[in-house]
Design a protein around this nucleic acid. Structure first.
Length: 310
DNA sequence: GTGATAACCTGGGTGC
DNA sequence: TGCACCCAGGTTATCA
C-alpha cells in the first residue's frame, strides 16, 4: 500500500492529483464505504455513496486545496484533506483486506476502460483506495451539476495563484483598505486559493514583506514582488513534490522534499539564509509564523488596527 | 463589511 | 512509566 499524505497545501494537493489522476480516470467507482459520518456531513454516508457508486470517474481536478472528482452524469465530489488527510491506494483491489489506522473512507474502483494507457495490464486490474485522516477534519462534498460546483467554489475560493489573472495589481485592489495583516490576507482562501501557512511564510520572506504589515498598506512594488514570490514558492513546492513534515510519500514511495528548501518556515533560531540574522517565530492570525525581521522590516506602529497586532 | 477568536480533533512533545 | 497539559493547523461559526 502506498501513501499520498502530507500537510496539504496547493503544491501537495497538486502532487497528489498529478499522481492519482492517471490511476483513477476512466475507472468506475464500484463501491464506496464511508466509515466516519463526519466526512460526508451534512449528507449521511449512504446518501453520498449512493449518488456516486456505479459512476465512471471522468476527471480528477484541483481547485485551491480541493481535489475535485468529476463523475459521469455531471456529478462531482469536492474533497478536502484539511490538515491530516491522506489517500492510500493499493493496486489489485486491495487483497490484504487490512485497513490502515484512521481509515475514514474505502473506495473500490473497477478496471479502466480507456485503451491508450501505457500500462494496459495495470489498467485492467481493480484498485482500492483508502482515505485516512487521524484528526478527522477532512470532508467530501457532493455537488450535482457544473453550476453547483461553480457556485460552491465561488463562495469559498478566490484567485488561483498559478492562473494568468493572478497579478500584483489584482491583489492590490482586493486588499485596498484592509487593515488585517498581509499574512492573514494570504491565508484567506476567499482572496487567494491554495496558500497555507508554509507557503505564506516562504512567499513573504522571498518578497521581503513583514507578515504583520497591514494588507492595505503594501506598495505597488511590494504587491508585484509578493505575487512573484507566491508563484515561485508554490512552483518550487510542486517541483519538489510537496513538503514532508510528518510522513509524506508519493505513489512511488518517494518523500516530498520541499521542506529541505524552507527558507524560514520552522527555522526559528537558525540564521537567515539571506542576511545571517536570526529567524524568529511569532503568532500572526493565530498561526505560527517565521520571519527574519532584518530582511522583512516590521511595520511602524501606526493606527489602532496595526497596534492590535503588535 | 471587517477582523478576531473559539471550536473542531487527535497525535506528539514536554514537564512533572 | 504514566499522567496532564499544550501545540499544531484549515475552515467555519460567532461575536464585536
Amino acid at each position: 500500500m502506498h501513501t499520498l499524505d502530507t500537510m496539504p497545501e496547493l503544491p501537495e494537493v497538486e502532487t497528489i492529483r498529478g499522481q492519482l489522476a492517471p490511476l483513477v480516470e476512466g475507472r468506475t467507482l464500484r463501491r464506496m464505504e464511508i466509515l466516519d459520518a463526519r466526512w460526508s456531513r451534512p449528507l449521511a454516508p449512504e446518501e453520498l455513496s449512493d449518488a456516486l457508486e456505479g459512476r465512471r470517474i471522468e476527471r480528477l481536478g484541483r481547485r485551491g486545496k480541493y481535489l475535485v472528482w468529476s463523475f459521469e452524469g455531471d456529478v462531482h465530489l469536492a474533497q478536502h484533506l484539511r490538515m491530516t488527510g491522506a489517500i492510500l491506494f493499493e493496486p489489485g483491489g486491495g487483497r490484504s483486506g487490512i485497513d490502515p489506522p484512521h481509515t475514514r473512507v474505502r473506495l473500490e474502483l473497477g478496471p479502466a476502460r480507456r485503451g491508450s494507457r501505457p500500462d494496459r495490464e495495470a489498467a485492467r486490474r481493480a484498485v482500492r483506495l483508502v482515505i485516512v485522516d487521524p484528526r478527522r477534519f477532512g470532508t467530501g462534498e457532493l455537488l450535482l451539476g457544473s453550476e453547483a460546483l461553480e457556485a460552491f467554489f465561488a463562495a469559498r475560493l478566490g484567485l488561483e495563484p498559478l492562473d494568468e489573472g493572478f497579478t500584483g495589481e489584482h491583489l492590490r485592489r482586493l486588499a485596498r483598505g484592509r487593515t488585517a495583516p498581509i499574512k492573514a490576507f494570504l491565508l484567506d482562501q476567499r482572496r487567494v486559493a491554495g496558500v497555507g501557512n508554509i507557503y505564506a511564510d516562504e512567499a513573504l520572506f522571498r518578497a521581503r514583506v513583514h507578515p504583520l504589515r497591514p494588507a492595505g498598506r503594501l506598495s505597488t512594488a511590494q504587491w508585484s514582488a509578493l505575487r512573484d514570490a507566491v508563484m515561485a514558492a508554490l512552483q518550487a513546492g510542486i517541483d519538489a513534490r510537496g513538503a514532508t513534515i510528518d510522513d509524506f510519500r508519493d505513489i512511488d514511495g518517494v518523500s516530498g522534499s520541499f521542506q529541505d528548501q524552507f527558507l524560514v518556515h520552522r527555522r526559528a533560531g537558525e540564521p537567515c539564509p539571506r542576511c545571517g540574522g536570526e529567524i524568529v517565530k511569532m503568532v500572526v492570525g493565530g498561526r505560527g509564523t517565521y520571519v527574519c525581521e532584518t530582511c522583512q522590516p516590521r511595520p511602524r506602529r501606526r493606527g489602532a488596527a496595526a497596534r492590535s497586532y503588535l
